[in-house]
Design a protein around this nucleic acid. Sequence first.
DNA 1: CGAATAGTACGATATTGATCACACTATTCA
DNA 2: TGAATAGTGTGATCAATATCGTACTATTCG
Lengths: 109, 109
Amino acid sequence: MNESSAVLPQPDLEDVEVATVLAALADPVRLKIVRALNQVDESTCAALEVPVNASTVSHHLHALREAGVVQTRVAGRTRPSRLRAAELQKRFPGLLSAVLDATPPRHAT
Amino acid sequence: MNESSAVLPQPDLEDVEVATVLAALADPVRLKIVRALNQVDESTCAALEVPVNASTVSHHLHALREAGVVQTRVAGRTRPSRLRAAELQKRFPGLLSAVLDATPPRHAT
DNA sequence: CGAATAGTACGATATTGATCACACTATTCA
DNA sequence: TGAATAGTGTGATCAATATCGTACTATTCG
């Protein structure tokens, strides 16, 4: 056992384009993941209740991580991820909150 | 000449998903168009200085219109478009402003 | 009318990316 | 050590979509 603070590679948000973050948030499944992470602060891949295969969840978390939206740490067998909410707020003020606060359309699908 | 208020079909923003708007804003060319429209309030297809073919500009404006981001009116031979900024602010408070206020990354491309 | 202009529509192409199944690694625990 | 579990990586497939060139429509103006 070592100290449990290993974190998967992630970009410095100062180097991230807003278009990259927008693209990361534009996918419905990823948006659901982001909303879930906002509720629980941290979650593993398996605990996320999204209607896709496990490898697809892994793919989406990878995409979110590369866009600077989430941070993933290594904890035993699991890789809990969390939103980089504070850093995103500093880099793109109001963006994440606006997305999280968005209400569903009138005619829900 | 008739009264100059013909407007191309556009969605009611109440029926638009935030993911749709995010996807519309995620493309670099469209983001450039949106930033340009924010500067000039209204612009024609040809006046937009984006590095793509005219038909591609038309395609992108169509996409932005269907996502509820811009409104296009018919004026003679031209079709000036404008941001639906106020309506977007009402539907997704803070979203458009956050995107427009976003600064370039440290290592500019 | 005829020429020029603004924009759109369409077809073709190429690229991206969302998804799954499966194999693989790393870790925990009996 | 062996079994079970969490997650990742790879390859395949399929659907979107960004782009261009060309043709077309509508409008203005000589």
